[in-house]
Structure formats: structure tokens, C-alpha cells
Design a protein around this nucleic acid. Structure first.
Lengths: 220, 220
DNA sequence: TACTACAAGTTTGTCGGCAAAATGGCCAGG
DNA sequence: CCTGGCCATTTTGCCGACAAACTTGTAGTA
């Protein structure tokens, strides 16, 4: 018996869905944009039924909204929706942070320190884009370190929906210096296995994101 | 222009998915059970492409798992997974409870008191099944009262995944009397607009569910 | 000029069909 | 009697096609 593990991701519709998810995360699609099935067929070289299944998967992710007989559109998230989503992300990742402090391995902590070092350098060299990527990677590592599969998947799904707003936010100047302190303290708390501290740091850190969204509300 | 609102739920795949979700909630399917596409076609009188789209929607909900070239199965949730899911439900519904205390209308509170009264009678007449339904309805009403769309949808999705275990739990004797006190206090806190209190009551209440699942761990 | 009705073109909704892969039974060999 | 490989059946993977619905552009009339 071969060790080849068969995953649903191997199937074409799942590959198409994953490609689209990646495109969403990179901001290639504008909210409200129509996703014409025929175009996606040509783009990925598959039939319409396949594209259709992929779109249903994205619907389950909350990334698209379907208008019968008209189109499948990139889901338009109002700022109010985004704020609510960010609130949910906050409580879920707060939970993850607690579990990360309890379950992180030596390797996890080493990786976190590496990321922290890279982020310090990104701040020094004024590289907000690189910093943003490192920040997301740090959140991912913390998530994995929690060994909390359920919470991790929810968190990933929600962050994907927030990608569009998150990009807007990350372009704000001065943000890296602000968040660096929180990241440093977070890693320290996780390394020390201090669950309560890790939890409260993550809560404050993410509530800062919620506040940033709220302040966007008045700007518009 | 007619006021007819066009919703994706009107489309056949979404109807099929919703029917299946209801069947899941009622425990008509056993975890791990195969969902043969041809059978579903006959059951709902639709083509295979339609069934297929419905199954992808359920996949997005986390209700089924797909094994390529073999079958789509009802997702088997290990007890560990269920505990993690319940933990996420706890933090999300804690958030909802806080918002419910802040945003509940007069009508919401009236409805909550009605439910409470009905639950008292269910306890008196030893009707655990009716009590269980009322309990779920109360949670739903609290969720709606929060006016927190994002959190509400996540919570619904997760509770659907937990339906199987939730049924097991609700059969335990003596549970109604335990939870009634919490429900009474919760409604009172929401009526008073005491967000902090409502939050902590919901947290304790749901953590009791997590504990109940944990105790199930040793029983098996 | 503005508004309605109609018609052509585009896009989605659903179905059946064929090819590929896995399951399970059967047979031959040890 | 057990084991291993082969074949038929079942079920899924994917595609093309036809029908229905919406959109857009146009012509005709008040």
C-alpha cells in the first residue's frame, strides 16, 4: 500500500477554488465584481460544471454572493460587516493565543523569534509591505502553535473575508511601530506559557484592528 | 418594480442543501454515512450536477467530507474536534450575548420572557425534548437580538456541526434544571442591558457544555 | 423628448452522457 | 485453506448542450 494520501484538494474544483482564494487574498478582484463562469472556464481550462462547484465552495467561505440568473459576484462587505467580522476574529484568535501559550513547542517558539527578528529589520528598513506579510505569518504560526484545528480554520476563513479591508489598513503609516511592541510581548508570553497574558495581549492587539476599522468609518 | 426579493435560496441547489442541513440537524444521517449522489438525485428529483453543487455548499459548511473517487460522507467529528468546536462556539456566543444586552429591543425581551415561561413548564412536565428545542430557540433569539450578523452566522454554522453531539448531550438527565437558572439570569442581564454580566453568564453556560463534552471523553 | 414594448444577445440553470477510478467478488495458484 | 491478482459493477469526475432568464439596444408612439 502506497503512502499516497488522497485529499479532496487534488480534485479540480478544489484547485480552482484555492486559486481563486489566493487571487482574492492578493486583491486581484474588486468587491462587487462579476465572476463570469465562461471567463473562469477559459482562465483555468476547465468545464462550467467544475467552475460552478468551485464557486459554491467559495460561497460556503462567504467570499462570493450569488444573485440567481444574474451573476456570482465578489462579496461586497460593508464597513459595518467588516467591523463585526473583525470582532469575531478577535475573540477566536484570543482563544487561539491562549492555547498557543499552553501548547507551543520549542520549534514554534524558535520560529516566532525568527519572525520577530525579521520584523524588527523590516521596521528599520521601512518596508511596510514586507512587515505586513511577516505579521500575517506570525499570526499563522501562533495559530498553528495553538494546536486548535477548529479555531484555526474559522480564523483563516474569516481573515480571508477581511483581506480587502486588511490591505487598506496595512497601508496606513506608522502602524508597524505600534504593533511591534504587541508582537514582542505576545511571543514572550507564549514562550513563558503564560496563557492569561497571551490571551489579553492578543485581545488588545486585535481590538486595535477593530478600532482602526471604526476610525475608517468616519474617514469615509 | 416588484418587491419580489430574489434570494439564492430560491435556486434548487440551495434548497437541496438546506433540506440536507435540516436532515442533519434532525440526526437523520449517521456520521461517516455515504451520501450517494444518485440516491439524492432520486430523493429530491433533480440532476446530478445540482446535487453536486449542494454537496459543495455543505462542504463549505463543514458538514461533509469528500474522499475523491470514493464518496462524499457525513463528516465524522472526533470528540476532540467537537470540544474544540464548542470552545469556539463559546467565545463567539459570549460576544453575541454582550451585544444582545446592548441591542435587544422590547420585543426581543418579551419573546425571551415567553420562552423562559415555556421552559419552566417544560421542566415541570418533564419534557426534555421540548425543553431542548426551547433552549435552542432561546439561543437563536439571543443571537438575533445581538444584531450581530457576522457572529450569528458563524455561530449557526458551528452549532450545525455540533448537532450530533448536542443531541447526545441533551438526553442526559437532570440537565434542564441545571441550565434553567443560567437562562433566567441571562435573560435578566440582557433585559437590564448589563453587557458584562450577560457576557460572563453566557461564557459560563457554554463552558458547561464544553465540560459536559469533556466528561463524555472519559465515559467512552 | 420621454416612455413603453419588443427583440437579439449574453449569461446562468439544469440535465444526461461518457470516461476514470475504486469496491467487491471470483478464480487460480500456493 | 489462505493469498494474490483479475474482472465486472458501482460510483464519482468532468464536460458539452439545450432551455430559461436577464440585460441591452432599438424602434415606435404619445
Amino acid at each position: 500500500m502506497t503512502a499516497k494520501q488522497i485529499l479532496p484538494e487534488g480534485r479540480v474544483p478544489y484547485q480552482v477554488a484555492e486559486s481563486l482564494r489566493a487571487a482574492f487574498a492578493r486583491g486581484e478582484f474588486v468587491p462587487g465584481q462579476r465572476l463570469v463562469e465562461a471567463e473562469l472556464c477559459e482562465r483555468y481550462g476547465v468545464g462550467r460544471a467544475t467552475v460552478r462547484e468551485a464557486l459554491r465552495l467559495l460561497d460556503g467561505d462567504g467570499l462570493v454572493e450569488v444573485v440567481p440568473h444574474r451573476a456570482t459576484r465578489v462579496r461586497t462587505l460593508s464597513l459595518a460587516d467588516a467591523i463585526q467580522l473583525a470582532e469575531v476574529v478577535t475573540v477566536v484568535e484570543t482563544l487561539l493565543s491562549r492555547h498557543a501559550a499552553l501548547n507551543a513547542t520549542k520549534d514554534d517558539i524558535t520560529r516566532l523569534h525568527e519572525l520577530l527578528q525579521a520584523m524588527r529589520e523590516a521596521v528599520k528598513s521601512f518596508d511596510p509591505l514586507g512587515y505586513s506579510e511577516l505579521s500575517e505569518e506570525l499570526h499563522r504560526v501562533v495559530g498553528r502553535a495553538s494546536r486548535h484545528q477548529a479555531g484555526l480554520e474559522i480564523s483563516k476563513r474569516l481573515r480571508l473575508q477581511l483581506a480587502w479591508f486588511h490591505q487598506r489598513l496595512s497601508l496606513q503609516p506608522g502602524k508597524p511601530v505600534e504593533t511591534t511592541a504587541a508582537h514582542e510581548r505576545l511571543v514572550l508570553a507564549i514562550a513563558n506559557g503564560d496563557a492569561d497574558l497571551a490571551e489579553s495581549i492578543m485581545r488588545e492587539h486585535n481590538e486595535a484592528m477593530v478600532s482602526a476599522l471604526r476610525s475608517l468609518e468616519q474617514a469615509v
